[in-house]
């Protein structure tokens, strides 16, 4: 197991290198000049030239690239091109907010989606199933930015139960600020988990070993939870791993709607200001998350089903 984890972590290196290369060149292909974005409409060509020189943007592209790779390998992302703030500090401030949002949304997705999916499969075509399908339909149909604004209108503006802006300071205040953004993202995840669990469980319930268990007189609850659900969870876990990555991207919109700090807010600001160093660092962190989530998903699948071997 430890050997497998180490091997997988080593695989991260070429993946991150590839991401670094793609990010570096994609940003430079994009139209727009960081110097104009930083200096504004009154910038003279002289000022623009000095800005480019100061940040090394006048160097040949291959030199900029190797400089960037060398810096990244030492985890030194430098300073923001736009405002000179150290990128390590900016990421350090933003990451806890994004991670807590993604985890809270995933927890909501699991807590609501899994039991609802299992119950709708067991009571197929019943009232509960109809409710579950309606829930999934609503969850998938509501765009997160719109749903977020609706939540803000009802629970923040009118009822004044939750704050409208920011990420909060201190544990309880942060938790208070987390509720609405987490529900916004978590509801879609719950709908996804519910649909996945339902279809996966329905598939498993048709299998021979389930019929055999029932024939042997095993209690129905035991059949479902011990035999069927455990096997149904493997595709659900894989699907949720993939969806967690989508949720990470989803934090970008939600952070904007709730004016919340985080990686998304940082990246959007960086892209619009053509802050190459900031966007590069942010995307590397995103790539790192993708690799880690994939690894955790594999480990979780192996834990659920011992027949899956980790090689």
């Amino acid at each position: 197991m430890i050997g497998y984890i180490l091997r997988r972590l080593l695989e991260v290196i070429p993946t991150v290198l590839l991401v670094l290369t793609l990010v570096f060149f994609a940003l430079r292909i994009m139209p727009g000049d960081p110097a104009i974005a930083a200096l504004g409409e009154f910038a003279t060509p002289d000022a623009i030239a000095r800005f480019r020189e100061k940040l090394g943007l006048n160097q040949p592209l291959y030199m900029q690239y190797f400089g960037f790779i060398a810096q990244s390998l030492t985890a030194d992302f430098g300073t923001s091109m736009n405002n000179g703030a150290p990128i390590g500090d900016l990421l350090g401030q933003a990451l806890p907010y994004t991670i807590s949002l993604a985890l809270a949304a995933t927890s909501i997705g699991i807590v609501i989606g899994l039991p609802l999916g299992a119950m709708t499969a067991v009571h197929r075509d019943g009232k509960l199933d109809a409710f579950g399908r309606l829930f999934a339909l609503i969850g998938f149909s509501l765009p997160d930015f719109y749903f977020g604004i609706l939540l803000l209108l009802v629970f923040s503006l009118h009822l004044d139960w939750f704050p409208m802006l920011g990420g909060g300071k201190g544990f309880f205040d942060q938790l208070h600020h987390l509720v609405l953004p987490a529900i916004t993202l978590g509801l879609v995840m719950a709908a996804f988990t519910m649909r996945l669990t339902r279809s996966s469980l329905l598939e498993v319930l048709k299998r021979d070993y389930v019929r055999t268990a029932r024939g042997k007189g095993v209690a129905e609850r035991w059949v479902i939870f011990k035999h069927a659900l455990r096997n149904a969870l493997i595709p659900v876990t894989t699907g949720m791993g993939i969806y967690l990555l989508t949720t990470l991207s989803g934090t970008i919109t939600v952070e904007l709607v709730f004016s919340r700090p985080g990686l998304g807010t940082l990246l959007i600001g960086g892209v619009s200001a053509r802050d190459y160093t900031l966007v590069q660092a942010g995307l590397v962190v995103f790539a790192f998350f993708v690799v880690v989530v994939n690894l955790l998903t594999d480990l979780l699948c192996a834990a659920i089903d011992p027949r899956i071997t980790l090689r």
Binding site: D160, L165, V257
Partner: peptide, 19 residues
Amino acid sequence: VLFLPETAARTLAFVKGDV
């Protein structure tokens, strides 16, 4: 001075009295 680029969020915060 709060940075609130989303018009909807900025407007709602003003209506509520947060800004």
